[in-house]
Write a protein that binds this DNA or RNA. Structure first.
Lengths: 231, 231
DNA sequence: CGCGGCTTTGATGTTCATCAAGTAAAGTGG
DNA sequence: CCACTTTACTTGATGAACATCAAAGCCGCG
């Protein structure tokens, strides 16, 4: 379920300046009093689709997948949230319940900030309101652009795209440990597990990537980029 | 290009209560002074991807497609905006330039409200800020859910889904005139024009829909709903 | 050790894009 | 208004891309 921790004060949070630069001391103190910090282990369920939304969730560290059951046996992944991302930032203001489940795919540290607190601060602090709107916009822009980009690609293009995404946008390194199974990749980019494996094996055979279990190294990013664009 | 009209005052706008209920007389007067209303004919280009965003666009009447070139010969449609929708509401706060082009697919009436005005009002009117955030959230939720729902479906399911969407969410009638060509439908739901035609013809042969050029009547919505879910 | 989950490879059939060709509809200029 | 051009629509045939089915190897874990 995740364990609550009580180590940090918003005031000394590393990310403070990045998302609450618009808050003065008093605003920060208010926010501090209505936030809760939790630690989750890889595999922990943070919340289930249908749960009531009470808080904005800010991801300090780790990775979280947003997913949804589409049938008894199948599930789809909407996106993978990175550190510094707000999660459910959209739903917080437009829905009563989460549309998606949240599951940690790496050990993660998150902050919950209650909806009431955020709404109160928005109402009384114009600069904070603009800040939050901008962050909401960027968050959904990102997801939408990713889905839009993937939708027209064929399988090889989608695999290329997602591998580059992990390397360049999540890990900032051409070598990384895939935090998800082949099957989860297939749920993220709408294809079958067998074909994820097949195409990754092709890339390996062609010398484009190196595979060792979950450890991946992109040897020829330029070629991968070309496949992503053309495919 | 669209012609500017000068008929209405925000104060007497039919939609006032729906999106500016949080504004008092003085706020409404301010907004009125920085809005411009335009009329576009079917086929008119409202703006091109890459244009600088200066305003929020509110669609009073008509239908507008959000689309994007993906190659010299191909284009993709992100979504179709309905009356009461804000357009580019997301991009307004997160981007300098439009990611998508806007084209009227029915005669349309839109209001431009300058970014400065909106930002100013958000900063000074907390209730308005919450209102706008909620609307932004809903707008992007809708698009995202549509894309997410379509992504896993096969062609028959996608056609069924989009026909029901036109009937139930856009025209509120099981008989309607398709505002777009077969080719545009294919750009909206990621398939080929030939297959849009083929599958619609199948539905007609099976007695599920009636087709007369652009006029469509859904005869058996329940079956279409089943195809949409299973397919 | 054996069980269950994840991974891998192969074979097969379905779904779909592509190519080709023809028809209808809509706009254009004389 | 009619010949002409262009654009949208339609149908069929073919092959490529992909899902599905089947079976086996691998690996961690009780």
């Amino acid at each position: 379920m995740g364990t609550q921790v009580n180590l940090s004060d918003c005031n000394i949070c590393n990310f403070k300046s990045l998302f609450f630069e618009s808050l003065q001391q008093d605003g920060l103190a208010k926010l501090n009093s209505c936030k809760a910090q939790f630690e989750f282990k890889k595999g922990d369920i943070i919340c289930n689709e249908g749960d009531t939304i009470g808080s904005i969730i800010f991801l300090n560290r780790g990775l979280i997948k947003l997913h949804k059951k589409v049938s008894e046996t199948e599930s789809q992944i909407l996106s993978i949230a990175r550190p510094m991302n707000f999660i459910g930032l959209l739903s917080v203001f437009s829905k009563e319940k989460f549309e998606y489940s949240l599951t940690a795919i790496e050990d993660s540290s998150v902050c919950y900030i209650s909806r009431e607190c955020i709404i109160n601060e928005i109402s009384t602090n114009g600069k904070f309101a603009i800040d939050i709107i901008t962050k909401i916009s960027k968050a959904s822009d990102e997801v939408l652009e990713q889905k839009f980009a993937l939708s027209k690609k064929r399988l090889r293009g989608r695999i290329a795209h997602i591998l580059l995404d992990f390397a360049e946008n999540i890990y900032n390194n051409y070598e990384f440990d895939l935090p998800v199974s082949r099957s989860e990749i297939s749920e993220l980019i709408d294809m079958r597990t067998e074909n994820v494996i097949r195409i990754m094996s092709e890339f390996r055979t062609d010398g484009i990537i190196r595979i060792n279990g979950h450890n991946i190294e992109i040897l020829k990013p330029a070629i991968l980029r070309k496949i992503s664009k053309s495919g």
